[in-house]
Design a protein around this nucleic acid. Structure first.
Length: 439
RNA sequence: GCCCUGGUAGUAUAGUCCGGUCUAGUAUAGGCGGCUGUCGCCCGCCCGACCCGGGUUCAAGUCCCGGCCAGGGCGCCA
């Protein structure tokens, strides 16, 4: 087939911007054929772009031969351009259609697509991920990532407003001994290096200069996880703030979550409708449950967890039934949290770490950090880590480390909350797990 | 990594328990033809599949063993 070049054609409108009151106007539209419904004497072509769809109507007897023969060959997913006249009509749901004067075909598509893009026969996640580029063309998938985009935009704006500076810490790191999570090794010239699992140590060091920093970026964990919440590569939104405590950054966090819910509700009405999902804007402050309270709540539900033990996934599910929306868990046993979380001054058994839960899912974890080199070294040893491996990080504590606190949001999990998706793979463009490395 | 469940046309499924008219059914997609107001268009015809390897049996999509893959759950996740 002879393909057309774009030439001097430029888009005048997206599909959704063509309105009935434009009756008689000429428009140039670009997009993809979503569906062709041919009734014999009249043919309907549904043109899709990233904003939505519009009907191109081809009445056989009242249209030029060239347009007709172009429209004869159109199939699903062909990339096309249409120059035509807007017509107000009460025969389409949107009250408008376009009668083409000229059609350009930019590229064709395979006739038998690997997934049904009209949504009549829903393909399984695995099949869809194998054909992700095509899968993402569907309105529902676009809606998920538009919501994610809106959320990240809202978060950035909120943090900028509060005086945070956006930073970029290394993805390639030298030491494999930062803690428990398994790291991916990489070849680094003649040396062995690793992909970063978190910006934790760097962002702490950066509060000494920038005071309030945040970072949005991918991190890597080589865990054996096989769940709907974990990926080997995930996007984390990290903040760290000088001269603050856990309570300060918790207040920041709950307002941020509320803000994101409001903004997404306001800006993504169409996308939420597409996903048949609604977001309830939470009241602040969020509930603050102590670890102790959580054990009591669980005990009442018949789930016994001895003090000092971590809360298992099934226990979190039970907890999520009692507290279905947002809540903090605070006052964790010090030994259950990372070495850099500050123990309470008056009761070192408990620490100033917190988790922000959404039902049974941990959305955010954070806390007051240890600012004393001496205490940090002690905590490293208590967690069977070698202070020698943290030498360059510990050195920063000789230069005036302020009291500080911070947290990290899992962007995927936040997007699950905002879109109602049950598997983190659904809200990740190209998910990576132990079994999937392509596409 | 462990446990459970599953793997049938491009996609989604029925059939497997209890082996034999399964020459494998249906929907959707795709091909051809028809149709002037569809919007999950409709109508007719056509195309297309039992994950791989081994075993049991007269006979295996169906039962057994191994492998691979997927989904769910658990664990892991400073």
């Amino acid at each position: 087939m002879r393909l057309d070049s774009i030439g001097d054609w430029r888009r005048t409108h997206h599909s959704v911007d063509v309105k009935p009151e434009m009756d008689g106007e000429e428009v140039t539209l670009f997009g993809w054929v979503q569906e062709v419904r041919d009734l014999g004497g009249i043919r309907f072509i549904i043109l899709q772009d990233r904003e939505g769809t519009i009907q191109i109507t081809v009445p056989r007897k009242r249209i030029g031969n060239e347009v007709l023969s172009k429209s004869d060959v159109l199939q699903k997913r062909y990339s096309i351009g249409v120059e035509g006249i807007v017509k107000k009509t009460d025969m389409t749901p949107r009250g408008v259609e376009v009668i083409p004067k000229e059609i350009k075909i930019f590229s064709t598509a395979t006739p038998r697509l690997p997934i049904d893009i009209t949504g009549k026969t829903l393909a399984n996640l695995d099949v869809r991920l194998d054909a992700r580029a095509l899968d993402l063309c569907q309105e529902e998938k676009i809606a998920v990532f538009k919501i994610q985009h809106t959320a990240v935009d809202a978060i950035r704006n909120f943090l900028f407003e509060k005086g945070f500076i956006e930073v970029h810490t290394p993805r390639i790191i030298a030491s494999a001994t930062e803690g428990g999570a398994a790291l991916f090794p990489v070849e680094y010239f003649e040396r062995k290096a690793f992909l970063a699992q978190s910006p934790q140590l760097y962002k702490e060091e950066l509060v000494m200069s920038f005071e309030k920093v945040f970072e949005v970026g991918p991190f890597f964990r080589a865990e054996e996880s096989h769940t709907g919440l974990h990926l080997s590569e995930f996007v984390s939104i990290d903040i760290e703030q000088a001269f603050s405590t856990a309570e300060d950054v918790m207040q920041l966090l709950e307002r941020l979550i509320q803000h994101v819910c409001k903004v997404v509700n306001r800006k993504c009405k169409k996308e939420l409708a597409t996903l048949k999902h609604s977001i309830e804007v939470p009241e602040v402050p969020f509930k603050r449950l102590r670890y102790e309270d959580v054990l009591q709540d669980l005990k009442r539900e018949g789930v016994e967890i001895p003090w000092g033990e971590d809360i298992s996934t099934p226990a979190f599910r039970t907890l999520g039934e009692i507290h279905p929306y947002f809540y903090f868990i605070v006052d964790w046993p010090t030994d259950l949290k990372a070495f850099y979380i500050k123990p309470h001054d008056d009761n070192p058994e408990l620490c100033e770490g917190f988790d922000l839960m959404w039902g049974w899912i941990e959305l955010v974890s954070g806390g007051t950090r240890i600012a004393s080199k001496e205490l940090l070294t002690k905590r490293l040893k208590e967690q069977d880590l070698n202070p020698e491996s943290f030498k360059s990080h510990l050195q920063a504590f000789d230069y005036g480390m302020p009291p500080h606190a911070g947290w990290a949001i899992g962007l995927g999990r936040l997007t699950m909350m905002l879109t109602g998706k049950k598997n983190i793979r659904e809200v990740t463009l190209y998910p990576r797990d132990k079994f999937r490395l392509t596409p």
